[in-house]
Design a protein around this nucleic acid. Sequence first.
DNA 1: GCGCCGATTGGCT
DNA 2: GCCAATCGGCGCC
Length: 203
Amino acid sequence: MTAGAVRPSVRPLGLRFFRRPAEVVAADLLGALVISRRRGGITAGRIVETEAYLGVTDPASHAYRHRRHAGNGALYGPPGTWYVYRSYGVHWCANLVCAGGPLGSAVLLRALEPLEGVPVMQRRRGRRAQAVLCNGPGKLTEALGIDQGLNGLPMHSAPVMVARGTAVSPARREATPRIGITKAADWPLRFVEADSPWLSRRR
DNA sequence: GCGCCGATTGGCT
DNA sequence: GCCAATCGGCGCC
């Protein structure tokens, strides 16, 4: 995919897309576009890695057993709501709420293929190589200018939206254990585009 | 009230 | 491979 992929005509994914089980949404998000119109310039990328967090029943979810606190209210919002939280007190991680309501399920964006606004991303990311601009959940938020300001906003009317991109055929989708967590890490809820060079670094 | 830990990253050994 | 940065939530005293 080349520059110019982001046209004014792109329309955000409908709420129906997100009103499904998180693992289904996570798999179907592969290949979708994330388009950011934040200050500093338009940036966009193609999703190549996601992780599903199932909500109340998932020990790794921030909504496990209906856990609720000041920071995670957005998790219980309508489908398609952005849930942005601070990781290790340093980085922002961006999720999209799925089923919505009391379940608290969501999909974490873990890696993108940079498509547009690479110089803008590099300005935000310290002039790093293109290969490492968006290959991690904290990296892609920095590259796209995503921070707490996005938390709780509906994706379809937010400065950062998700639109249909170039689909990844089911044969090229791969489910793996989740990364970087201690609880229920072995649940196969991480989804990647097989062989993509833009995936997050494996530990 | 206090200390530990995490859905991470980048720099240094 | 190891570890600091940095901070809110949570367990525990």
